[in-house]
Design a binder for these strands. Structure first.
Lengths: 120, 120
DNA sequence: CATGACGGTATCCTTTTCGACACTATGTGC
DNA sequence: GCACATAGTGTCGAAAAGGATACCGTCATG
């Protein structure tokens, strides 16, 4: 059931900020969009780029993004299934937002280098 | 207890996008920041600008923003308490992000005009 | 004396989110 | 005959987020 994350916004000015935020919060939506800016991608292609995201979560996020009209899902009626995801114009219009987030994140978020596996 | 929302980011590129997002998700953070760009404000001043946010939630969000180093909290030892909130440089550096969100939100989020009360 | 403004806390409860895991169908390769 | 790849779905349960409500002490005001 596609839940509604941006139900009512009858609050004061600045509220559209919250409204916009509702579209891209959710654990992996930011990254998914970020990767889709590179172009159309298949399900497992996205999945491989976000290894920490489980399959179920990825499906969920993609479904929500689709419901929100940010991405398009194209299913090919083939026998090894093939599904392609791409940005809609609306999704693409989020680029300045994602870019701003990327810039700020690069400057302010401390990435943890891949230690855990190697150091064991 | 200030929970940690941006614990580990050892995933692929684009992950800083998610990292940045973690700082500003949370129900009212976007709006709070947006209003604070106008200048230093007292608790109830912010509160009045975001009527749909309960006192408890506002306190929470402010505390988290403070913990994350985005805003500064200045308490005056007065008898009707006085507490001022303002952006830190780091918080101020989020301006492009919030601005991008505002622009996108203004264009894409349908605000519900204040019906409920008047139309009864 | 009661009330309200200030800036919160404390408590309780419901909803939402997220992660783990198993399971599905079909076709291909070995 | 078995495993693998594709793109998912279903179920379960823990944890977190969010909302409602009541309460706190102090001072000024009526």
């Amino acid at each position: 059931m596609p839940r509604i994350r941006h139900e009512r916004f009858d609050c004061s000015p600045g509220c559209t900020v919250e409204g916009a935020l509702r579209y891209i919060d959710g654990k992996w939506k930011g990254v998914v969009l970020y990767h889709l800016f590179e172009g159309t991608m298949r399900f497992n292609e996205i999945r491989r780029r976000i290894p920490n995201c489980t399959q179920r979560m990825l499906t969920n996020q993609l479904r929500e993004l689709e419901t929100d009209g940010l991405i398009a899902r194209k299913v090919y009626a083939q026998v090894p299934p093939k599904v392609e995801y791409s940005l809609t114009p609306r999704g693409r219009s989020l680029e300045p937002v994602i870019t701003a987030l990327k810039i700020w994140g690069d400057a302010n978020v401390t990435l943890v280098p891949e230690v855990s596996q190697a150091a064991a």
